[in-house]
Design a protein around this nucleic acid. Structure first.
Lengths: 236, 236
DNA sequence: GTGTACGAGTTTGCATGCAAACTCGTACAC
DNA sequence: GTGTACGAGTTTGCATGCAAACTCGTACAC
């Protein structure tokens, strides 16, 4: 499957925004954080290939810094699970199908719970705003893959924000919605897009009804459906 | 509340085991990982106080290494949220009530989901083993706080293992069951212990019945109950 | 007494140094 | 041809160096 990923260029487009925590750290950790971000991007966009050994001196030269900030960044990347230890040093981590299934389950658990909390804690205005993100989308005649990714992200982020739990938000961010990117978005069938729209509408309906369990179930179903689509596209 | 924590010595006793991921890294990252563990322990056991600035040179002297492995460890500790950036360098992170509530919610979401998966995926033997952990405990005449903590940990770990999702297990480990330690265990009332036992029995009953939703709900209730007990004890 | 400016001392962030561990190709034995 | 032993070259892990940024106490102005 990593072969498939390589060939279809499916890896890229992870959400590269810094988490709230990381932003907070920008204050002092100047170059080291910059290095971390750039290495993260390089891995995530596939410039550094899965299983590729990461030679500190090479990375240092590539980013025009010394080995010290590189080594510190590698610690962070290891905590993110983007990099994995070898007998000596580090290599880019390769994700198996099994791991992507596991991540989908974790995301279903966390984001489902976020939807549950949102059903109780969101203001009416917030729920209206969530619905309007979907309305805007449904009202458009032409949907580019980039727009679909972006709109989807706003939809999910708005629900997560309404859950009022920054730690939960951060953990959802960490587990990553890395598999819905432009490339994938461009390969979904009309039917799959219809299902996606249906899922979103179910979630909104539950939120409007302030139905916590319903919102949670709908969100879980949605996330596991997205995983199924992902599986079909990358072909396992 | 951090004042309360200081006075009651409530901070200690976080689970100091390395996660599966960390163990894997032991191979190459020798001293640096050792340093990380020792700093983690020092923070978690309260040797390094919340908001205490962490002076690299002092830590280096204290652990008898140079500043380099200290700095690398600080990156890991930051990823764990045990350490927080200051204008210059780092300080031990202080948890607010609000953050502990947030963590409890995340743990309820993740560990509830683990119970759900366990209800479907556990073998009959695994469920029997989970039940027997509780049977052993209920059959004892005298329960020391240390035993209660240890038995509780085995109970939860067995359920998590039966969920067959290592990423989920790792995330549960990360969010930490830091608030149920010996000190807290020694301060619970007979009534609270009764409730705890009841919660565990409910979870077991749902697992035996292979009732996924029931197991999830019971686990969530249990975790949120534990948070309530924690709140009472540390007194907010 | 209150406020501010200076400077010695501290501490960081990054670069560099260096020995030990590992890798890998060559050559030699059989 | 297959296997192994050696050693040059590479790369790491940790230590140390050093300039820049910050801290904090003292002294001086008002």
């Amino acid at each position: 499957m990593d072969q498939v990923m390589k060939n279809t260029g499916v890896l890229p487009d992870v959400d590269l925004r810094l988490s709230a925590l990381q932003k907070n750290e920008r204050r002092n950790q100047g170059a080291a954080l910059e290095v971390y971000e750039r290495l993260r991007r390089a891995i995530v966009e596939g410039e550094l290939r899965p299983n590729e050994p990461l030679i500190e001196a090479d990375l240092a030269k590539m980013l025009n810094v010394s080995r010290t900030p590189i080594r510190e960044s590698l610690q962070r990347l290891a905590a993110d699970q983007l990099v994995t230890p070898r007998k000596r040093g580090w290599a880019v981590r390769e994700y198996s199908v099994e791991e992507i299934r596991e991540r989908s389950e974790v995301r279903a658990a966390l984001e489902g719970y976020a939807a549950r909390l949102a059903a109780t804690r969101a203001t009416d205005d917030e729920i209206a705003a969530i619905a309007s993100i979907q309305d805007e989308r449904d009202g458009m005649t032409e949907l580019t893959p980039a727009y679909r990714v972006e709109s989807n992200r706003r939809f999910h982020d708005a629900i997560i924000a309404a859950a009022r739990n920054t730690r939960l938000a951060d953990d959802i961010f960490r587990v990553g919605q890395f598999y819905f990117n432009r490339h994938i978005a461009g390969l979904t069938t009309a039917e799959e897009q219809k299902l996606n729209q249906h899922d979103h509408r179910e979630i909104i309906a539950a939120l409007v009804a302030r139905d916590a369990r319903g919102a949670e179930d709908a969100m879980r179903t949605h996330i596991l459906n997205a995983f199924t689509v992902f599986q079909r596209i990358v072909g396992f």
